[in-house]
Simulated assay, not measured.
Amino acid sequence: MSESRAVLEGPDIHRALTRIAHEILERTKGADEVVLIGVPTRGVTLARRLGERIEQFEGVKIPVGSIDITMHRDDLRQGPARPLGRTDLPPDGVDGKIVVLVDDVLYSGRTVRAALDALSEFGRPAAVQLAILVDRGHRELPIRADYVGKNLPTAKSEKVKVSLRETDGRDAVILRKGDAR
């Protein structure tokens, strides 16, 4: 039997994204050369939200895009075929830009590695940074987020589910204990 509880609700997620947006601006010394690239599916929504916040703070519309990592995953042979997703990069591309990859949960690091591989096909950024809503630990690769909304130590048997109002009807981060299916 599994037990679920919300570890973040809508206002918590709002505050975390606001803080991350400010941290991005501080670290990059403004938004001029920043491009936000979301990893589907929820990373794209989070990247859009970060872009909106940065625009509110700086008055500058920041380029936001998405990157399909399907063909760069190292687990392609372990399951059924996956449909290809859409890569939608800003018109000016990523060359010479500070690219902030955005995703919802950082776990093993394999999704981020796939995103880095996919990104390398589209140009050469000046720097790549990583913004994550939830870091749950258990890294299998040497990957660390630059911006973290919430560090959430978990057991490997637990599951973290991010719900966003645009795709799921509500903002929440749910931790499922026990039978994590």
Rank of each mutant, 00 (worst) to 15 (best):
A155G: 01
I98M: 03
E26F: 13
R139N: 10
L46Q: 07
N151Q: 04
V99N: 11
I24L: 10
G59A: 08
G123R: 02
R110S: 13
L89K: 13
E166C: 08
Y147C: 01
L175G: 03
A6W: 00
T167M: 06
D75G: 11
L119M: 11
R113I: 02
K159W: 07
E140T: 05
A180P: 08
A114V: 00
T28W: 00
G178M: 06
V102K: 01
I20A: 13
D117W: 04
V94R: 02
A21Y: 01
I13C: 06
L36R: 13
V148L: 08
S66P: 13
G178F: 02
R27C: 06
R124D: 13
R48M: 09
E158I: 07
G169E: 13
A118C: 06
A31F: 01
A172Y: 07
R144C: 01
P125Q: 01
S2I: 03
R136W: 10
L25Q: 12
A155N: 13
F122D: 10
Y147L: 00
R181L: 14
Q129W: 00
V64H: 09
L101C: 11
R165Q: 14
L133V: 02
R176D: 02
G109E: 02
L89P: 12
V162T: 05
D74N: 15
D95L: 08
T45L: 11
T87C: 02
D68M: 07
P90T: 06
K97R: 15
G38W: 04
L89S: 09
A21V: 05
I20V: 15
A114Y: 07
N151W: 04
A131P: 05
P91D: 15
H14S: 11
R15N: 13
N151E: 10
R49N: 01
I20F: 08
S120G: 04
V134P: 06
F122L: 12
I54R: 03
L106A: 10
L17V: 11
G79N: 12
